[in-house]
């Protein structure tokens, strides 16, 4: 059964009559998407998946379109994923890895963007260390902007590929208990996922050390607890967030050892979840810090599927945005 059929059980194989369009010409945050738009992206991604199974993994849809991958933070995983997606759609992908130093950061972004304008890229995929960087870029130029991660704010395509992965294992997102665990305060993956999962009706629990609990977390529409066991109990999905080990300098937690024992996902801890729970992680993994190796590599882990779904989701986003009107906001 396709994603689409799962989400609209009554529709069978009737073609959708609602127009396939995103209202905004940018994808800056999940917060800007309606549940219908989220479903549209997921449906389209589902269809895009098949292209990766063909002998010639290419369609001519974005032929002649230029997409610039403007990455101010190093990221092999996300950047390659976007690049593959762009190439599968026959777009011309340009990778610009801009150096960041805290002094030059702000200048580089707007100046680089203005320089890019001369190439008239159709789309810019931006990853930057400052929250709101993609909003700044959206105001500066005329290209469509896709947020590939801005500071601590959002990582929309990650949440979308997470949702697609969940739907491949669960019949629907509504009503699922999803536990998200880790450095919540600094995580853009958390914010995007909390928004998306709430929009689709999941019961979202979050857990992490109190030093890493965002201010006002209860207003995010999630249940927050410092007890990981409580969050994981009877969960359908357990999503582990990456701990940046540099956090130890901000006195957030004393050591990897203690973090792992209190918050790490081990086999025993996973037993508290439902027997058919799936384990997710946006990557890259810190084995033995947030997740035990045997869990990461175990039968419940869908981590590698997340990666392949990433390409499909990004293809869907590129395709749908490329079709948006020039003048739309």
């Amino acid at each position: 059964m396709s994603t689409q059929d799962k989400l609209r059980p009554g529709a069978a194989r009737k073609p959708a009559t609602s127009p396939a369009r995103l209202r905004s010409r940018h994808l800056l945050s999940i917060a800007d998407l309606t549940p219908d738009e989220i479903l549209l992206i997921l449906d389209t991604a589902q269809a895009m998946k098949e292209i990766g199974t063909r002998p010639i993994k290419k369609v001519p849809t974005l032929r002649g379109k230029t997409v610039v991958n403007l990455f101010f933070e190093p990221s092999t995983r996300t950047r390659t994923s976007f690049e593959i997606a762009e190439k599968r759609l026959s777009a011309d992908a340009l990778n610009v890895a801009a150096l960041t130093s805290s002094v030059v950061k702000g200048e580089s972004l707007t100046d680089t963007a203005r320089n890019l304008e001369s190439m008239a890229p159709d789309m810019i995929v931006l990853r930057h260390g400052s929250s709101g960087a993609c909003h700044l870029l959206a105001d500066v130029g005329s290209s469509r902007i896709i947020n590939a991660g801005d500071g601590m704010h959002e990582h929309p395509t990650q949440a979308l590929l997470d949702a697609l992965t969940i739907l491949e294992h669960k019949s629907s997102i509504a009503g699922l208990k999803v536990a998200i665990i880790g450095d919540l305060a600094h995580s853009r993956v958390l914010r995007s996922n909390a928004l998306l999962l709430n929009a689709l009706g999941a019961d979202v629990w979050v857990s992490g050390p109190s030093t890493m609990m965002p201010c006002g977390i209860h207003r995010f529409g999630v249940t927050a607890t410092t007890s990981v066991d409580e969050a994981v109990t009877e969960a359908d999905v357990v999503m582990m967030l990456r701990i940046q080990l540099e956090r130890m300098r901000g006195h957030f937690f004393p050591s990897r050892r203690e973090y792992f024992s209190l918050f790490g996902l081990t086999r025993e801890r996973l037993r508290l979840a439902k027997h058919d729970a799936i384990v997710m992680h946006p990557g890259p993994l810190n084995r033995g810090v947030e997740i035990a190796s045997d869990v990461a590599d175990g039968p419940d882990s869908v981590i590698l599927e997340q990666v392949s779904n990433g390409v499909a989701v990004r293809m869907a986003v590129l395709y749908l945005l490329a079709g948006t009107e020039e003048g739309t906001a």
């Binding site: 929250s131 853009r188 914010r191």
Partner: peptide, 19 residues
């Protein structure tokens, strides 16, 4: 204050700004 740029509260948390 560290490297904060906005008041530590719900609104900064939503925007992903250090408080």
């Amino acid at each position: 204050k560290a490297d904060g740029s906005a008041h530590e509260g719900y609104h900064a948390a939503v925007l992903g700004l250090r408080g």
